[in-house]
Write a protein that binds this DNA or RNA. Sequence first.
DNA 1: TCTGGGGTCCTAGGACCC
DNA 2: TCTGGGGTCCTAGGACCC
Length: 412
Amino acid sequence: MFQIRSWPETILHVDGDAFFASVAQAVDPRLKGKPVVTGQERGIATAISYEAKKYGIKRGMRFVEMKKMCPNCIFVRSDYELYSLYSHRLFEILRQFSPSVEEYSIDEGFLDLKGLRSPHHMGYEEMGRKIKNMIESNLGITISLGISVTKSLAKIASDFHKPSGLTVIDGKNIETFLKKIPIQKVWGIGEQTSAYLRKLSIHTAFDFVSQSEEFVQSHLSKPFFEIYQELRGKKIYELNLEKKTTYQSISKTQTFHPPTMDKDILWARLLAHIEDAFIKARTYNYRVEKVHMFLKTQSFLYHATEIKLKNQTQYPFLIRNELEKAFNKIYHPHVLYRTTGCTITNLKEDANTQQGLFQNLHLEHKVKKIYPFIETKKIDFGTSLFDKEEIQEKKVKPKPSIPFLDLSLIST
DNA sequence: TCTGGGGTCCTAGGACCC
DNA sequence: TCTGGGGTCCTAGGACCC
């Protein structure tokens, strides 16, 4: 059908097994070998150890259901700092084996191993085994590895045997291997597309790669044609070796557990999200041009709107009136809302932004001086003075506004 | 599965222009 | 009433990922 060499390229994919739960077990020996679930602070399962998965516990499950299925399950709080520490150590080890490492997510990475057999004096599979042993013995967690000729194939390989697996697919074995892979297991082919492909009698990854190029191009869009080529052993996706320093968008959302129709609470929540999103934007030195905000009703309908700013800004209180108008447009009284959220987009690097666009440079200069102070002192910008729980229980009614700063008090 | 939070990229279609 | 082509920019929304 299609013939390729054994190793035109060599990509290794590493995937942590139930990463957050494994890290929790690694730092606390009492949790070893026991069913552990993270996410206690929200009451919803985030990561589930393999011991707990046996009881049928799934992501998103609530505490009460979990306890019913697995009474001796241990529910622990999330600790993202700890996870990123382990992530760092994981990638440090990976870099000892190859200079080309992509940090795909906190617990997943791709390595380019091409041409490294002779410097390491070993074959690819042996290299994989060595990497695996080193990580498992140093970090006390298990990982699954896949080695193949493209990223897509390496990803399928690492998923094939979990936990603690090592699967190698060389160019000569692709076809045999893909016969065992249901189409929905392919990276990038989700629920919608796999349902569509099944209607076309394509049930496995092998069925997919058996189609002609013309067939795939005429029935599917570009990203799927790329996946098709990757599965046939043609490298399309390069490794992304750069650290993430740029964003297309930044979003903040939160679902609160008793839904509410209280206008003040919703407005305060939303402002807090907008403020948080802008804090992140400032960290990356972005000016913001668009603010998208939404309220999600209890029946999962979105009430959303968007503001496009004439003058891009880094400070939400400068656009407070626009924000409030937008909120009033989407808020409907007597509707129960469960989630508020915002996404800021059209992010422009500050240095490249034309200064002239900002009308009051003097004001902006002052604002820049005072803002770091506000951030470090955690001066209230909506809700942060109050405990989240208190607000949810309505013991405290938050003041739903960004206070205006009295800039005359600031000496420049 | 009665459904959390943070992202990315692609496509279709309308507006507008020549 | 019928009758053209093509380009660009923007937005909404879909689909997918961890």
